[in-house]
Design a binder for these strands. Structure first.
Lengths: 193, 193
DNA sequence: GTGCGGGGAGACCGTTCTGTCTGCAGCTAG
DNA sequence: CTAGCTGCAGACAGAACGGTCTCCCCGCAC
Protein backbone atom coordinates (compact mmCIF):
# COMPACT_ATOMS: atom_id res chain seq x y z
CA UNK A 1 0.00 0.00 0.00
CA UNK A 2 2.83 2.30 -0.77
CA UNK A 3 0.66 4.71 -2.75
CA UNK A 4 -1.90 5.13 0.03
CA UNK A 5 0.33 7.24 2.25
CA UNK A 6 -1.34 10.05 4.27
CA UNK A 7 -0.62 12.73 1.67
CA UNK A 8 1.96 12.22 -1.06
CA UNK A 9 3.17 15.82 -0.70
CA UNK A 10 1.96 17.57 -3.83
CA UNK A 11 4.64 18.22 -6.40
CA UNK A 12 5.72 21.71 -7.29
CA UNK A 13 3.80 21.58 -10.55
CA UNK A 14 0.69 20.56 -8.70
CA UNK A 15 1.03 23.38 -6.18
CA UNK A 16 1.48 25.90 -8.99
CA UNK A 17 -1.63 24.67 -10.76
CA UNK A 18 -3.65 24.71 -7.56
CA UNK A 19 -2.63 28.28 -6.79
CA UNK A 20 -3.30 29.40 -10.33
CA UNK A 21 -6.71 27.76 -10.18
CA UNK A 22 -7.69 29.51 -6.99
CA UNK A 23 -6.41 32.92 -8.03
CA UNK A 24 -7.43 32.91 -11.69
CA UNK A 25 -10.92 31.59 -11.05
CA UNK A 26 -11.69 34.23 -8.43
CA UNK A 27 -9.92 37.31 -9.68
CA UNK A 28 -9.41 36.85 -13.42
CA UNK A 29 -6.24 36.48 -15.41
CA UNK A 30 -4.82 39.94 -15.90
CA UNK A 31 -5.50 40.88 -12.28
CA UNK A 32 -3.25 38.07 -11.04
CA UNK A 33 0.52 38.25 -11.42
CA UNK A 34 2.96 35.40 -11.74
CA UNK A 35 4.61 36.42 -8.49
CA UNK A 36 1.43 36.02 -6.52
CA UNK A 37 0.92 32.54 -7.88
CA UNK A 38 4.56 31.75 -7.19
CA UNK A 39 4.30 32.97 -3.62
CA UNK A 40 1.04 31.11 -2.88
CA UNK A 41 2.48 27.91 -4.33
CA UNK A 42 5.65 28.43 -2.29
CA UNK A 43 7.75 27.82 -5.34
CA UNK A 44 10.76 29.46 -6.95
CA UNK A 45 10.21 31.45 -10.09
CA UNK A 46 12.59 29.30 -12.07
CA UNK A 47 10.59 26.26 -11.03
CA UNK A 48 7.39 27.79 -12.27
CA UNK A 49 8.93 28.57 -15.63
CA UNK A 50 10.44 25.11 -15.80
CA UNK A 51 6.93 23.66 -15.77
CA UNK A 52 5.11 26.30 -17.80
CA UNK A 53 6.79 28.11 -20.66
CA UNK A 54 4.81 31.30 -20.11
CA UNK A 55 1.86 32.77 -18.26
CA UNK A 56 -0.31 32.06 -21.28
CA UNK A 57 0.53 28.36 -21.09
CA UNK A 58 -0.30 28.37 -17.42
CA UNK A 59 -3.64 29.97 -18.23
CA UNK A 60 -4.38 27.25 -20.79
CA UNK A 61 -3.50 24.60 -18.22
CA UNK A 62 -5.80 26.35 -15.76
CA UNK A 63 -8.66 26.24 -18.27
CA UNK A 64 -8.09 22.52 -18.81
CA UNK A 65 -8.22 21.91 -15.10
CA UNK A 66 -11.32 24.06 -14.81
CA UNK A 67 -13.04 21.83 -17.35
CA UNK A 68 -12.03 18.77 -15.38
CA UNK A 69 -13.07 20.07 -11.97
CA UNK A 70 -16.04 22.25 -12.86
CA UNK A 71 -17.59 20.94 -16.06
CA UNK A 72 -16.85 17.24 -15.67
CA UNK A 73 -16.66 16.60 -11.97
CA UNK A 74 -19.20 19.14 -10.83
CA UNK A 75 -21.84 20.16 -13.41
CA UNK A 76 -22.08 16.82 -15.19
CA UNK A 77 -21.80 14.78 -12.05
CA UNK A 78 -24.36 16.83 -10.13
CA UNK A 79 -26.79 16.78 -13.04
CA UNK A 80 -26.62 13.01 -13.40
CA UNK A 81 -26.71 12.40 -9.66
CA UNK A 82 -29.71 14.56 -8.86
CA UNK A 83 -32.19 12.95 -11.23
CA UNK A 84 -32.71 9.69 -13.08
CA UNK A 85 -34.36 10.92 -16.26
CA UNK A 86 -32.48 13.18 -18.70
CA UNK A 87 -35.11 15.94 -18.50
CA UNK A 88 -34.77 16.00 -14.75
CA UNK A 89 -31.00 16.02 -15.16
CA UNK A 90 -31.20 19.11 -17.34
CA UNK A 91 -33.34 20.87 -14.76
CA UNK A 92 -31.10 19.64 -11.94
CA UNK A 93 -28.29 21.76 -13.34
CA UNK A 94 -30.13 24.76 -11.99
CA UNK A 95 -30.64 23.11 -8.62
CA UNK A 96 -26.88 22.75 -8.39
CA UNK A 97 -26.49 26.32 -9.61
CA UNK A 98 -28.87 27.48 -6.90
CA UNK A 99 -26.57 26.17 -4.20
CA UNK A 100 -23.53 27.43 -6.06
CA UNK A 101 -24.90 30.97 -6.40
CA UNK A 102 -25.45 31.15 -2.65
CA UNK A 103 -21.90 30.23 -1.73
CA UNK A 104 -19.89 33.05 -0.22
CA UNK A 105 -16.95 32.24 -2.48
CA UNK A 106 -19.03 32.09 -5.67
CA UNK A 107 -16.56 32.71 -8.45
CA UNK A 108 -18.64 32.63 -11.64
CA UNK A 109 -17.82 30.82 -14.85
CA UNK A 110 -14.15 31.07 -15.68
CA UNK A 111 -14.76 30.29 -19.34
CA UNK A 112 -17.07 33.28 -19.69
CA UNK A 113 -14.80 35.51 -17.66
CA UNK A 114 -11.67 34.61 -19.55
CA UNK A 115 -13.38 34.75 -22.93
CA UNK A 116 -14.64 38.26 -22.24
CA UNK A 117 -11.26 39.32 -20.91
CA UNK A 118 -9.78 38.27 -24.27
CA UNK A 119 -12.71 39.44 -26.34
CA UNK A 120 -10.77 41.27 -29.00
CA UNK A 121 -8.76 39.44 -31.62
CA UNK A 122 -8.47 35.66 -31.62
CA UNK A 123 -5.88 34.97 -28.98
CA UNK A 124 -5.32 31.28 -28.18
CA UNK A 125 -6.68 31.89 -24.69
CA UNK A 126 -9.91 33.33 -26.03
CA UNK A 127 -10.24 30.47 -28.48
CA UNK A 128 -9.65 27.91 -25.74
CA UNK A 129 -12.38 29.46 -23.60
CA UNK A 130 -14.86 29.31 -26.46
CA UNK A 131 -13.95 25.67 -26.96
CA UNK A 132 -14.49 24.80 -23.31
CA UNK A 133 -17.89 26.48 -23.48
CA UNK A 134 -18.73 24.40 -26.54
CA UNK A 135 -17.83 21.29 -24.56
CA UNK A 136 -20.43 22.23 -21.97
CA UNK A 137 -22.94 22.61 -24.76
CA UNK A 138 -22.07 19.18 -26.08
CA UNK A 139 -23.08 17.71 -22.74
CA UNK A 140 -26.36 19.60 -22.88
CA UNK A 141 -27.01 18.29 -26.37
CA UNK A 142 -26.35 14.76 -25.16
CA UNK A 143 -28.88 15.12 -22.38
CA UNK A 144 -31.37 16.65 -24.80
CA UNK A 145 -30.94 13.74 -27.18
CA UNK A 146 -31.33 11.25 -24.34
CA UNK A 147 -34.53 13.04 -23.41
CA UNK A 148 -35.80 12.63 -26.94
CA UNK A 149 -36.15 16.36 -27.51
CA UNK A 150 -36.26 17.82 -31.00
CA UNK A 151 -33.07 19.40 -32.43
CA UNK A 152 -30.82 18.66 -29.46
CA UNK A 153 -28.08 21.02 -30.62
CA UNK A 154 -30.41 23.97 -31.10
CA UNK A 155 -32.01 23.21 -27.79
CA UNK A 156 -28.58 23.11 -26.17
CA UNK A 157 -27.78 26.58 -27.46
CA UNK A 158 -30.91 27.98 -25.84
CA UNK A 159 -30.37 26.07 -22.64
CA UNK A 160 -26.83 27.37 -22.50
CA UNK A 161 -28.14 30.94 -22.82
CA UNK A 162 -30.17 30.33 -19.66
CA UNK A 163 -27.12 28.97 -17.87
CA UNK A 164 -24.85 31.82 -18.89
CA UNK A 165 -27.47 34.45 -18.22
CA UNK A 166 -28.12 33.14 -14.76
CA UNK A 167 -24.42 32.96 -13.92
CA UNK A 168 -23.92 36.58 -14.92
CA UNK A 169 -27.02 37.56 -12.96
CA UNK A 170 -25.64 35.74 -9.94
CA UNK A 171 -22.35 37.61 -10.27
CA UNK A 172 -24.45 40.75 -10.25
CA UNK A 173 -25.99 39.70 -6.95
CA UNK A 174 -29.21 37.94 -7.93
CA UNK A 175 -29.32 34.88 -5.67
CA UNK A 176 -32.59 33.70 -7.21
CA UNK A 177 -31.17 33.60 -10.73
CA UNK A 178 -31.02 29.81 -10.81
CA UNK A 179 -34.68 29.44 -9.96
CA UNK A 180 -35.68 31.94 -12.61
CA UNK A 181 -33.60 30.12 -15.20
CA UNK A 182 -35.02 26.77 -14.14
CA UNK A 183 -38.55 28.03 -14.69
CA UNK A 184 -37.68 29.27 -18.16
CA UNK A 185 -35.94 25.99 -18.79
CA UNK A 186 -39.09 24.09 -17.96
CA UNK A 187 -40.98 26.10 -20.55
CA UNK A 188 -38.21 25.57 -23.09
CA UNK A 189 -38.39 21.81 -22.67
CA UNK A 190 -42.11 21.94 -23.37
CA UNK A 191 -41.53 23.61 -26.71
CA UNK A 192 -38.92 21.07 -27.77
CA UNK A 193 -40.80 17.99 -26.68
CA UNK B 1 -27.23 80.33 -36.12
CA UNK B 2 -23.85 80.63 -34.56
CA UNK B 3 -24.03 77.21 -32.90
CA UNK B 4 -24.81 75.41 -36.17
CA UNK B 5 -21.26 75.66 -37.50
CA UNK B 6 -19.92 72.71 -39.52
CA UNK B 7 -18.26 71.02 -36.55
CA UNK B 8 -17.45 72.86 -33.33
CA UNK B 9 -14.09 71.08 -33.04
CA UNK B 10 -14.53 68.67 -30.13
CA UNK B 11 -12.85 69.74 -26.92
CA UNK B 12 -9.95 67.82 -25.47
CA UNK B 13 -12.18 66.33 -22.80
CA UNK B 14 -14.60 65.16 -25.43
CA UNK B 15 -11.84 63.55 -27.51
CA UNK B 16 -10.51 61.75 -24.46
CA UNK B 17 -13.93 60.39 -23.59
CA UNK B 18 -14.54 59.29 -27.16
CA UNK B 19 -11.24 57.44 -27.31
CA UNK B 20 -11.80 55.84 -23.94
CA UNK B 21 -15.26 54.75 -25.07
CA UNK B 22 -13.99 53.11 -28.22
CA UNK B 23 -11.04 51.38 -26.57
CA UNK B 24 -12.64 50.35 -23.29
CA UNK B 25 -15.82 49.03 -24.88
CA UNK B 26 -13.95 46.84 -27.33
CA UNK B 27 -10.95 45.65 -25.39
CA UNK B 28 -11.81 45.96 -21.72
CA UNK B 29 -10.32 48.18 -19.05
CA UNK B 30 -7.12 46.53 -17.91
CA UNK B 31 -6.09 45.74 -21.46
CA UNK B 32 -6.10 49.44 -22.40
CA UNK B 33 -3.42 51.80 -21.09
CA UNK B 34 -3.71 55.50 -20.48
CA UNK B 35 -1.08 56.16 -23.12
CA UNK B 36 -3.11 54.49 -25.83
CA UNK B 37 -6.16 56.59 -24.98
CA UNK B 38 -3.98 59.69 -24.86
CA UNK B 39 -2.47 58.95 -28.24
CA UNK B 40 -5.81 58.19 -29.93
CA UNK B 41 -7.33 61.37 -28.50
CA UNK B 42 -4.27 63.31 -29.66
CA UNK B 43 -3.96 64.90 -26.27
CA UNK B 44 -1.16 65.60 -23.83
CA UNK B 45 -0.93 63.47 -20.75
CA UNK B 46 -1.23 66.48 -18.47
CA UNK B 47 -4.44 67.46 -20.25
CA UNK B 48 -5.93 64.04 -19.66
CA UNK B 49 -5.13 64.21 -15.98
CA UNK B 50 -6.47 67.75 -15.78
CA UNK B 51 -9.89 66.42 -16.77
CA UNK B 52 -9.83 63.06 -14.99
CA UNK B 53 -8.12 62.60 -11.67
CA UNK B 54 -7.21 58.98 -12.36
CA UNK B 55 -7.82 56.10 -14.72
CA UNK B 56 -10.55 54.87 -12.39
CA UNK B 57 -12.43 58.16 -12.73
CA UNK B 58 -12.10 57.95 -16.48
CA UNK B 59 -13.55 54.46 -16.33
CA UNK B 60 -16.51 55.71 -14.31
CA UNK B 61 -17.07 58.50 -16.85
CA UNK B 62 -16.90 55.90 -19.60
CA UNK B 63 -19.59 53.82 -17.89
CA UNK B 64 -21.83 56.88 -17.59
CA UNK B 65 -21.43 57.60 -21.26
CA UNK B 66 -22.09 53.97 -22.07
CA UNK B 67 -25.39 54.20 -20.26
CA UNK B 68 -26.27 57.32 -22.22
CA UNK B 69 -25.28 55.99 -25.63
CA UNK B 70 -26.12 52.32 -25.29
CA UNK B 71 -28.87 51.93 -22.69
CA UNK B 72 -30.74 55.17 -23.24
CA UNK B 73 -30.14 56.14 -26.83
CA UNK B 74 -29.94 52.69 -28.31
CA UNK B 75 -31.71 49.92 -26.36
CA UNK B 76 -34.56 52.04 -25.01
CA UNK B 77 -34.97 54.04 -28.18
CA UNK B 78 -34.93 50.99 -30.46
CA UNK B 79 -37.37 49.13 -28.24
CA UNK B 80 -39.87 51.98 -28.21
CA UNK B 81 -39.44 52.73 -31.91
CA UNK B 82 -39.89 49.20 -33.20
CA UNK B 83 -43.29 48.50 -31.66
CA UNK B 84 -46.28 50.38 -30.31
CA UNK B 85 -47.39 48.06 -27.51
CA UNK B 86 -45.15 47.42 -24.49
CA UNK B 87 -45.10 43.66 -25.05
CA UNK B 88 -43.92 44.21 -28.57
CA UNK B 89 -41.36 46.66 -27.29
CA UNK B 90 -39.95 44.06 -24.94
CA UNK B 91 -39.64 41.57 -27.77
CA UNK B 92 -38.21 44.24 -30.07
CA UNK B 93 -35.16 44.43 -27.83
CA UNK B 94 -34.11 41.12 -29.30
CA UNK B 95 -34.75 42.31 -32.83
CA UNK B 96 -32.31 45.12 -32.18
CA UNK B 97 -29.93 42.63 -30.57
CA UNK B 98 -30.17 40.44 -33.64
CA UNK B 99 -28.77 43.21 -35.82
CA UNK B 100 -26.25 44.14 -33.17
CA UNK B 101 -24.92 40.58 -32.82
CA UNK B 102 -24.27 40.45 -36.57
CA UNK B 103 -22.17 43.58 -36.68
CA UNK B 104 -18.50 42.99 -37.38
CA UNK B 105 -17.53 45.35 -34.55
CA UNK B 106 -19.86 43.74 -31.98
CA UNK B 107 -18.41 44.69 -28.64
CA UNK B 108 -20.69 43.05 -26.08
CA UNK B 109 -22.12 44.62 -22.96
CA UNK B 110 -19.56 46.82 -21.24
CA UNK B 111 -21.40 46.64 -17.94
CA UNK B 112 -21.10 42.87 -17.87
CA UNK B 113 -17.51 42.93 -19.08
CA UNK B 114 -16.38 45.52 -16.56
CA UNK B 115 -18.31 43.95 -13.71
CA UNK B 116 -16.67 40.58 -14.35
CA UNK B 117 -13.26 42.20 -14.69
CA UNK B 118 -13.76 43.65 -11.20
CA UNK B 119 -15.51 40.60 -9.80
CA UNK B 120 -13.58 40.33 -6.58
CA UNK B 121 -14.04 42.78 -3.75
CA UNK B 122 -16.38 45.75 -4.04
CA UNK B 123 -14.37 48.25 -6.01
CA UNK B 124 -16.27 51.43 -7.03
CA UNK B 125 -15.97 50.39 -10.67
CA UNK B 126 -17.59 47.04 -10.00
CA UNK B 127 -20.32 48.68 -8.00
CA UNK B 128 -20.98 51.21 -10.75
CA UNK B 129 -21.32 48.44 -13.33
CA UNK B 130 -23.86 46.62 -11.20
CA UNK B 131 -25.78 49.86 -10.84
CA UNK B 132 -25.86 50.48 -14.57
CA UNK B 133 -27.15 46.95 -15.07
CA UNK B 134 -29.88 47.63 -12.53
CA UNK B 135 -30.86 50.71 -14.52
CA UNK B 136 -31.41 48.53 -17.56
CA UNK B 137 -33.61 46.29 -15.45
CA UNK B 138 -35.62 49.29 -14.28
CA UNK B 139 -36.50 50.00 -17.88
CA UNK B 140 -37.55 46.40 -18.36
CA UNK B 141 -39.75 46.60 -15.28
CA UNK B 142 -41.36 49.76 -16.62
CA UNK B 143 -42.22 48.06 -19.88
CA UNK B 144 -43.52 45.03 -18.01
CA UNK B 145 -45.74 47.24 -15.87
CA UNK B 146 -47.00 49.08 -18.94
CA UNK B 147 -47.82 45.72 -20.45
CA UNK B 148 -49.83 44.83 -17.38
CA UNK B 149 -47.72 41.80 -16.56
CA UNK B 150 -47.67 40.31 -13.09
CA UNK B 151 -44.72 41.15 -10.79
CA UNK B 152 -42.92 43.48 -13.18
CA UNK B 153 -39.69 43.47 -11.19
CA UNK B 154 -39.46 39.70 -10.98
CA UNK B 155 -40.29 39.50 -14.65
CA UNK B 156 -37.56 42.03 -15.40
CA UNK B 157 -34.98 39.88 -13.62
CA UNK B 158 -35.86 36.90 -15.80
CA UNK B 159 -35.98 38.98 -18.95
CA UNK B 160 -32.60 40.40 -18.10
CA UNK B 161 -31.20 36.88 -17.78
CA UNK B 162 -32.25 36.27 -21.36
CA UNK B 163 -30.59 39.47 -22.51
CA UNK B 164 -27.35 38.80 -20.68
CA UNK B 165 -27.26 35.16 -21.71
CA UNK B 166 -27.77 36.03 -25.35
CA UNK B 167 -25.07 38.72 -25.27
CA UNK B 168 -22.54 36.29 -23.83
CA UNK B 169 -23.59 33.69 -26.38
CA UNK B 170 -23.10 36.24 -29.14
CA UNK B 171 -19.63 37.03 -27.84
CA UNK B 172 -18.99 33.32 -28.06
CA UNK B 173 -19.97 33.38 -31.73
CA UNK B 174 -23.66 32.42 -31.72
CA UNK B 175 -25.22 34.81 -34.24
CA UNK B 176 -28.69 33.34 -33.65
CA UNK B 177 -28.61 34.03 -29.93
CA UNK B 178 -31.06 36.92 -30.16
CA UNK B 179 -33.68 34.82 -31.92
CA UNK B 180 -33.34 32.05 -29.36
CA UNK B 181 -33.73 34.55 -26.52
CA UNK B 182 -36.70 36.16 -28.22
CA UNK B 183 -38.49 32.81 -28.43
CA UNK B 184 -37.87 32.14 -24.75
CA UNK B 185 -39.02 35.69 -24.02
CA UNK B 186 -42.30 35.04 -25.77
CA UNK B 187 -42.89 32.05 -23.54
CA UNK B 188 -41.92 34.04 -20.47
CA UNK B 189 -44.46 36.74 -21.27
CA UNK B 190 -47.15 34.07 -21.47
CA UNK B 191 -46.43 32.92 -17.95
CA UNK B 192 -46.56 36.43 -16.53
CA UNK B 193 -49.68 37.55 -18.33
C1' DG C 1 -0.89 95.23 -22.69
C1' DT C 2 -1.34 91.61 -19.19
C1' DG C 3 -2.91 87.87 -16.87
C1' DC C 4 -4.78 83.47 -17.07
C1' DG C 5 -6.60 79.17 -18.31
C1' DG C 6 -6.60 75.43 -21.74
C1' DG C 7 -3.74 72.71 -24.16
C1' DG C 8 0.71 70.37 -26.16
C1' DA C 9 5.30 68.00 -25.76
C1' DG C 10 7.71 65.09 -23.34
C1' DA C 11 10.94 64.00 -19.52
C1' DC C 12 10.63 61.67 -15.42
C1' DC C 13 9.41 58.61 -11.23
C1' DG C 14 8.18 54.61 -8.83
C1' DT C 15 5.93 50.39 -9.36
C1' DT C 16 4.65 46.22 -11.39
C1' DC C 17 4.76 43.03 -14.90
C1' DT C 18 6.68 38.81 -17.46
C1' DG C 19 10.52 36.37 -18.10
C1' DT C 20 15.81 35.05 -17.59
C1' DC C 21 19.83 33.91 -15.22
C1' DT C 22 23.12 32.38 -11.71
C1' DG C 23 24.20 29.71 -7.85
C1' DC C 24 23.38 26.31 -4.54
C1' DA C 25 21.21 22.29 -2.12
C1' DG C 26 19.27 17.83 -2.07
C1' DC C 27 17.80 13.31 -3.89
C1' DT C 28 18.33 9.32 -6.59
C1' DA C 29 19.86 6.14 -10.29
C1' DG C 30 23.70 4.15 -12.38
C1' DC D 1 30.99 8.52 -6.23
C1' DT D 2 28.93 11.07 -9.40
C1' DA D 3 25.84 12.81 -12.83
C1' DG D 4 21.54 14.65 -13.48
C1' DC D 5 17.23 16.22 -12.22
C1' DT D 6 14.26 18.95 -9.21
C1' DG D 7 13.78 22.65 -6.60
C1' DC D 8 14.87 27.06 -3.82
C1' DA D 9 16.56 31.90 -3.49
C1' DG D 10 16.88 35.95 -5.46
C1' DA D 11 19.14 39.28 -8.54
C1' DC D 12 18.30 41.11 -12.86
C1' DA D 13 16.50 42.83 -17.38
C1' DG D 14 13.28 45.18 -20.15
C1' DA D 15 8.97 46.75 -20.90
C1' DA D 16 4.61 48.80 -19.62
C1' DC D 17 2.00 50.78 -16.32
C1' DG D 18 -0.28 55.05 -13.80
C1' DG D 19 0.76 59.39 -12.56
C1' DT D 20 3.55 63.94 -11.87
C1' DC D 21 6.15 67.59 -13.42
C1' DT D 22 8.16 71.49 -16.07
C1' DC D 23 8.19 74.40 -19.90
C1' DC D 24 6.11 76.50 -23.71
C1' DC D 25 2.39 78.22 -26.79
C1' DC D 26 -1.87 80.42 -27.77
C1' DG D 27 -6.33 82.79 -27.45
C1' DC D 28 -9.22 85.62 -24.90
C1' DA D 29 -11.07 88.73 -21.35
C1' DC D 30 -10.13 92.61 -18.76
Amino acid sequence: MAEALPLPAPSARERILESAYELFSHRGIRAVGIDEIRERADVAKATLYRHFASKDELVLAFLDRREQLWTREWVEREARARALDPEGQLLAIFDAFDEWFRRADFEGCSFINVMLEWADGDHPIGRASVLHLANIRAFLATLAAEAGLREPETFAHSWHILMKGSIVAAAEGDAEAAQRAKAMGGALIETYR
